[in-house]
């Protein structure tokens, strides 16, 4: 474990807890894309298949359970909670799941480290995580209003993966044989997707104006 990875995990943890807390306290999911949340639940499910087979550390197991639990709770709130579901904007959140899931699945079947079920599922989860934010970014551009909790959520989500890139660079230089080029490419693509959001986020923060994404 290095400081970059710990900071990345903590940032990721805070991002999902910020979102869960927002939905739980104000009983609203305005501005939140259910599609993205469902994709994240799928990412964690396919990423953590080894949850009960390979024990890495208490930290690893606890964090996996938190990510699984929080992502499914968020999906449950938006789909099932009698008050929260009313604030879900299903007319705007129209990104088709299969436009994202199918290409990632095909890519995982073509490009992977090893052709085993677990390995292909793990690779699929990497590709899926890289693009899972798209429905959320599309929704933010459509609704144009970004309440700052949602802005913080997206910002923290992007920051966590950027910290992971620093972690991969660090591990590449400190650990021999640490080569996971698929992870690196997926992680870089993911962070680049946030790049324009980061730009507008910093602009709004610097000029102290409400965050607006260009249509």
């Amino acid at each position: 474990m290095n400081i970059f990875r710990l900071a990345g995990d903590m940032t990721h943890l805070v991002s999902v807890l910020v979102l869960l807390l927002k939905i739980h306290t104000i009983k609203s999911c305005a501005g939140i894309s259910l599609k993205t949340q469902e994709l994240y639940a799928l990412v964690f499910t396919t990423r953590y298949l080894d949850l009960f087979t390979d024990y890495i550390s208490l930290y690893n197991t606890v964090m996996k359970l938190i990510f699984l639990g929080s992502s499914f709770s968020i999906v449950w709130y938006i789909r099932r909670h009698k008050i929260v579901r009313r604030s879900y904007d299903k007319d705007q959140d129209t990104f088709r799941h299969y436009f994202i899931v199918l290409p990632c699945l095909v890519l995982a079947l073509l490009i992977h480290h090893k052709f085993t079920f677990k390995e292909v599922m793990w690779t699929f989860s990497l590709y899926l995580e890289a693009v899972a934010i798209l429905p959320q970014l599309v929704l933010l551009q459509r609704t144009r209003n970004i309440d700052n909790l949602t802005g913080q959520y997206v910002f923290l989500l992007g920051a966590y993966r950027a910290l992971y890139i620093l972690n991969w660079i660090y591990r590449h230089y400190t650990e021999p044989h640490y080569v996971h080029w698929i992870t690196w490419i997926a992680g870089i693509v993911q962070t680049l997707l946030y790049a324009d959001f980061f730009y507008y986020y910093f602009q709004s923060w610097k000029n102290n104006v409400k965050l607006q994404l260009p249509a």
Binding site: R47, I56, M63, H113, W122, Y164, N167, H180
Partner: peptide
Amino acid sequence: EEDEDIKDEL
């Protein structure tokens, strides 16, 4: 056979 590369990251 290289050891199963442990996925120790989240």
